[in-house]
Structures are given as C-alpha cells and as structure tokens.
C-alpha cells in the first residue's frame, strides 16, 4: 500500500486524520502539518498497523 493520509470530515465538522501505509513513525511527521493546520488534536491512537514489525530487507551475500 502506498503511503497516504485520509482526512474525514463529518457533516458536523468532526475531523479525523488517519495515516496508512507508512513505515515507522514517519506517519506522525507526515500528518502533523495537517493536524496543526486544521485545529487542535483531541485524541490520538496508534492502530495495530503502527506496531507491526516493519519488513527488514535481507541481504544475501553470494560467495565467489
């Protein structure tokens, strides 16, 4: 999944910002400018995806 930020606003003006597909805590840096621009953050939670182990690139060394 390519990284993206989903901003959902209800007809009452309630606003939520969710990040998806980011690697590590970069999701918080990506969404922070939107949080700051829109108003005041009232609640924040990390989804299970946040705590998932990031895939680690494995290097296979070939022996000559």
């Amino acid at each position: 999944m390519s990284p993206r930020i989903e901003i959902t606003v209800t007809p009452a003006g309630e606003t939520s910002i969710q990040t998806k597909g980011f690697a590590g805590p970069s999701c918080e840096a990506a969404s922070k400018p939107y949080e700051d621009a829109l108003g005041v953050a009232t609640a924040k939670r990390r989804t299970p995806e946040y705590h998932a182990v990031a895939p680690v690139a494995q290097t296979v060394e070939q022996q000559a």
Binding site: I17, T19, E35, L38, G39, R45
Partner: peptide, 14 residues
C-alpha cells in the same frame, strides 16, 4: 504503519 488523530477544527484561516 498507521495512527488515527481526532481534531477539533478551528476556523482561523480567512
């Protein structure tokens, strides 16, 4: 990886 933030919108930008 992901997180969810709820924001109280403030209309400060004309």
């Amino acid at each position: 990886m992901s997180h969810l933030v709820t924001v109280a919108a403030k209309a400060t930008d004309p």
